[in-house]
């Protein structure tokens, strides 16, 4: 066994291989960044969309829903929800949530959003829907 398999060689390969693949990952990430402006619709981001994203975050929507498939799997995908129900449908749904829930059923909490907040949320969700995400989800149900 002596000599044919040494720890120093294994260690050098570990360091070399790690640096190598990390650099490769950085190179791909760099290319991704040059391509993203064509896909992420950043030119359309308004203060209202930013406000909507903040509302999305500060109410932990991702704790039940998915957005582009990421999040929790307790409630429907929202990346395409504006396409599914329309702007007004989404707002009406959020507004109509009963405070004490629905007996025996899953229910979204009543967040008491103002109309301006609802507009911001919908603007954010519309923006997400406009991102070129390789045609995901497979259908309107998300």
């Amino acid at each position: 066994m002596s000599g044919a398999f040494t720890k120093s060689m294994a260690r050098n390969i570990f360091y070399g291989g790690t640096v190598f693949f990390f650099l490769l990952f950085l190179a791909l990430s760099f290319d991704t960044h040059s391509q993203l402006p064509k896909r992420d619709m950043r030119q359309n981001i308004t203060p209202q969309i930013a406000e909507g994203k903040k509302l999305w975050e500060t109410n932990d929507c991702v704790g039940c829903h998915t957005l582009m498939g990421e999040g929790a799997y307790f409630a429907p995908e929202l990346g395409n929800v504006v396409a599914r129900y329309g702007d007004e449908g989404v707002k009406a749904f959020i507004k109509a949530r009963p405070k004490e829930g629905i007996p025996g059923r899953r229910s979204m909490p009543q967040f008491n959003f103002t109309d301006a907040q609802l507009d911001a949320l919908v603007a954010f969700l519309k923006h997400v829907n406009s991102v070129n995400d390789a045609n995901w989800p497979p259908n309107i149900q998300g």
Partner: peptide, 16 residues
């Protein structure tokens, strides 16, 4: 010692 092993069985370089 690896060098003393029959040459056919010796792997050049390190297993790693």
């Amino acid at each position: 010692d690896p060098a003393e092993m029959p040459s056919a069985r010796r792997l050049p370089g390190d297993l790693a």
